[in-house]
Amino acid sequence: MVLWALLVGLSFPVVGWISELPPLLLTALRFAIAALALYGLARRAPDWRPSPVAFALYAVMGLCLAGFFGAMFWAAHRATALSMATLFVSVPLLAYCLGLAARVERLAWRLPSILALGAAGALGLAWADSRSEGAGLRFGLGEAVFFLGCVSSALYPVLSKWGLMIRLLSPSPAVRTFWSLAIGSLLIGFVGLMLEPVSSLRQMTALDALLLAYLGLFSSAMTFWLQQRATNELSPGAVTAYSYLIPFVSMLLLFWQAPRQIGWAWLPGSLLVIVAIVLLLKRGSATV
């Protein structure tokens, strides 16, 4: 999951290099590339063809992916960056609470404490980043829609763990990743066709196509496969908690590109995130 956080964190500057193209259709293409990359690996599993009930669960998981990315793109121009970063911090805690409801989490004090510590650190990094941009924290329609997207994101690992627990989904991470991405690609693409002009994709350059292929292979196929692989061993709250490392990775990239922006404001959040991840790693090694 540390590798997962590194890949996700490194994908943000790559997204910024792509030309201004329809975001939903780009995401659908990105997920389609990821699904195609995993097809050969998924097909090797003996149970790669899901039952009708399992397919319905994969459809709900794909809907979760479509819901999060759709909400994110819709809210991008209606909510402040600080508000969205703050709301995204709620995903691990939401996953833990939803996991309790689905009985895939255990009621204890240690994991929620680690999640709260990591959330405080991520909020500290978001606050430090917002100081230079002058972004304010508020809650309006855009924030409400993005929060629903965060709920969808938190529900994805819970459904994966629940499907594994009742032996409905394949134990193969590749199979689970393939079907959720394939269905998610269809759902996001359907929404994109209704809301975005397909003709604008003609402006895609060769560099855009290469970057999109990179995002599909590494930032989607690899990251979702790693998440599904971790789901075999970790609870939903623990899996999503590693997302607290993403702003830390983005901070390191910022310092590499603009060293003058290094300041003491980044220190408290960074230390809290590092401590939370170390505690998660110790907790994980203790349960193996």
Rank of each mutant, 00 (worst) to 15 (best):
G284R: 03
L267K: 03
L271V: 15
G16H: 14
R30D: 10
V288D: 00
S270A: 14
L164D: 07
L195E: 15
M251E: 04
V275Y: 03
G269V: 04
M72N: 04
L111W: 00
G216E: 11
P46L: 09
G118S: 15
P247E: 13
W225P: 01
A76P: 04
W264Y: 13
F224E: 07
E105P: 01
R229F: 08
I183P: 00
Q228L: 12
A206K: 10
Y39W: 14
L169M: 03
F68E: 05
S219Q: 11
W162T: 08
I183H: 10
V288I: 07
A56Q: 06
M72S: 02
W179D: 03
M84S: 10
G40I: 01
G269M: 03
F178S: 04
S90E: 02
Q227H: 07
M204G: 15
G140L: 05
M61H: 11
S220R: 06
V145E: 10
M204Y: 09
R43T: 09
E143A: 14
F218S: 08
L254D: 06
L25C: 01
A66F: 15
L186Q: 06
A241D: 01
S200T: 12
A42Y: 08
W74H: 14
L111A: 00
L281D: 05
E133M: 05
R176F: 07
L36Y: 02
G16P: 12
Q228G: 02
S220P: 05
S19C: 01
S153H: 10
I166E: 14
A258Q: 14
W256T: 00
L234A: 02
A66I: 07
S130Q: 02
Q257M: 08
R131I: 02
S185C: 07
S235N: 02
R106N: 10
R49W: 13
L215K: 00
L148K: 05
N232Q: 15
S170C: 12
G184V: 15
P52V: 05
